[in-house]
Design a protein around this nucleic acid. Sequence first.
DNA 1: TTATAATATTCCTTTACAGGAATATTCCTG
DNA 2: CAGGAATATTCCTGTAAAGGAATATTATAA
Lengths: 111, 111
Amino acid sequence: MMDTAALSALSEPKRQQIVELLAEGPLTVGEIAETLCLRQPQTSKHLRVLLEAGIVNVRAEANRRSYSLRPEPFQAMDHWLNAFRNLWMERLDNLDHYLQQLQSKDKKQDR
Amino acid sequence: MMDTAALSALSEPKRQQIVELLAEGPLTVGEIAETLCLRQPQTSKHLRVLLEAGIVNVRAEANRRSYSLRPEPFQAMDHWLNAFRNLWMERLDNLDHYLQQLQSKDKKQDR
DNA sequence: TTATAATATTCCTTTACAGGAATATTCCTG
DNA sequence: CAGGAATATTCCTGTAAAGGAATATTATAA
């Protein structure tokens, strides 16, 4: 199961915007608020939700706080999606082939 | 922006379970309810949400309804994640290399 | 230490949504 | 057409969560 807190946090439009913004690099609360035309308190609230969902990190920098993305939840989503890839990868034989290649690589590493 | 309705639908634990179950193939309401120990009305409600979010399809089959996954939202999530892959793909030089290969392929196609 | 910028929190109100229970609908079978 | 299975819908209630406004906190600079 994919972490529902993370999905829930990302299902809010403005939080998703924040996350997309942070994909380009760490930002402070004020920068985020200004870029997305949000009020500061709401921005802080959204960031708190993202923080508690494990989606962002904070770093205190003097007077301000720099928020940045944590890789784990996105990586987890990517892995979770594996269970669904065959839905749209029509050429399953190619997928099989790919998986076989992975296996042979593993075997090589065993040696 | 990733479709927030889809994410919202998936952020509910039982709906996520339903989706994971459907990943293995289409199922009817009763089958889903029994497998996940849900009551039938709740199951139908969850399926309705998933339906309106574009995550599942229905097919009327005689007395029952068969629900199945639609590939699009998952594919969309996969594409959306591309903006975040550099967060956990440490070897960015490899990614660069890969992108350069893609570009040269495009150029070949132009000729 | 005081003023000020940057950020966080609280309180309030409104809205959305999940679960339970009961009921309605639809479709097959005899 | 009547009965019954499979599914959908409605009503109700409690709870969580978002936005606005005001306020509290923290840390820097003078």
